[in-house]
Design a protein around this nucleic acid. Structure first.
Lengths: 124, 124, 124, 124
DNA sequence: GTGGTCTAGACCACA
DNA sequence: GTGGTCTAGACCACT
């Protein structure tokens, strides 16, 4: 399981959202696998159940998980249809980071080398 | 000058910070050039002066501008010493976006092509 | 038989209620015909018998079916006496949907055309 | 302002969502008009602020209002582009109600007459 | 003043 | 047992 950083600028529920997303992406959770219950996660992370709820709701709205009342929350299958808005947003993120890196003095070649390596290794 | 989006999820002052950063990066403001006064910007963007003040303070803390009391705010020279923590954080951002893009079904080749193009054009 | 959608926002028992209603309305079940037993349905839909029980109870309360202890559940005859409260509620639903459609930019003609077609075909 | 029905099957926040939607549709609130603050509504309806928040969030996600932190919530302009998924859902609602009305013994002619009248009068 | 987040603890319907 | 909703009351960042 992931670690929370209470000092972070990110809100707790957002950290949980990102943490679970990361676990789904990395394959630690597979499609249709059950996530821990709200109460369990709440106890594990020593965070209020409402906060976990909020995170789960957000994940559901973004299509990462689905909820079966009375049973629990489960990982959605990866969407086959690529959501253009979503990918555009991610490429935007990358573009902004690249701009800042350039401004911070890194050369195009340096950035390109590091990023290419990163992509080849699947983002690691 | 840049546009504010009141409906955006980003707070106003954050939009101003990003907007000014973008103008510095793009070269619309050069090193040691004077930025508009708080009052002017406030009038131009029809935003509370406190909000502008806050944005300037943030930019100063991040090293993008410096303040000369009684004269105004000026653009800093691009830092020669590369801040490792900052660049690491930016590369992290990129890595996360790449991971998510892969998970969303894009191929390594597609991502690499788009990102390479982006870097060659300086992040645009 | 109908399909259950575990991911749906509707609860399981509500889906069963609606499913059986639909089959009665469409004529797949006729008046005084026997419905499958709780145990059979439970096995067919792989759903807890309690949930089936609950659905049958709800259908009985709403007057769609009647129970003969020891024999099973049977489809009621269509009520001859029209329940004003119920019809008023249904017309209310329609009115609200129409209002929202108008607000969303559809023209009166478009709505009227689609709805008329729908009614002529018996709601399909 | 609208009335809450604590005995209703609908949850409170859902009633608030529907109530505000209705007021927007009816024109009681116009585009870019400010809604009451979370605290004010909370006091008016004697409902916990969190519940109001939840309702506002839902309205925002559905595109009915937008939020400006520190200023308040405002009514969105009616979308020019018609959302097919949304309209389909509304027509579905209507279809289901029509089916039930037919089953309850109303004739096609009766339903058609009432619904046509309703549409001509803009849903009233 | 505004909305945004969080905690603590409770009750409900559903499976 | 599960998630869904609600209350009460608190603190925060932003305008």
């Amino acid at each position: 399981m992931f670690q929370l950083d209470l000092k972070s600028k990110k809100s707790i529920y957002e950290q949980i959202v990102d943490g679970i997303k990361a676990m789904i992406i990395s394959g630690e959770y597979s499609a249709d696998e059950k996530l821990p219950s709200v109460r369990d996660l709440s106890a594990q992370l020593t965070v209020n159940p409402n906060t976990i709820q909020k995170a789960f709701k957000a994940l559901e709205q973004q299509g990462w998980i689905y909820t079966v009342t009375g049973r629990g929350c489960f990982v959605s299958e990866s969407a086959k249809t690529i959501d253009r808005a979503q990918t555009a947003h991610l490429f935007d993120n990358i573009a902004n980071s690249v701009k800042e890196l350039l401004y911070l003095g890194l050369s195009i070649e340096e950035i390109q080398k590091i990023v290419d390596d990163m992509i080849m290794k699947g983002g690691n």
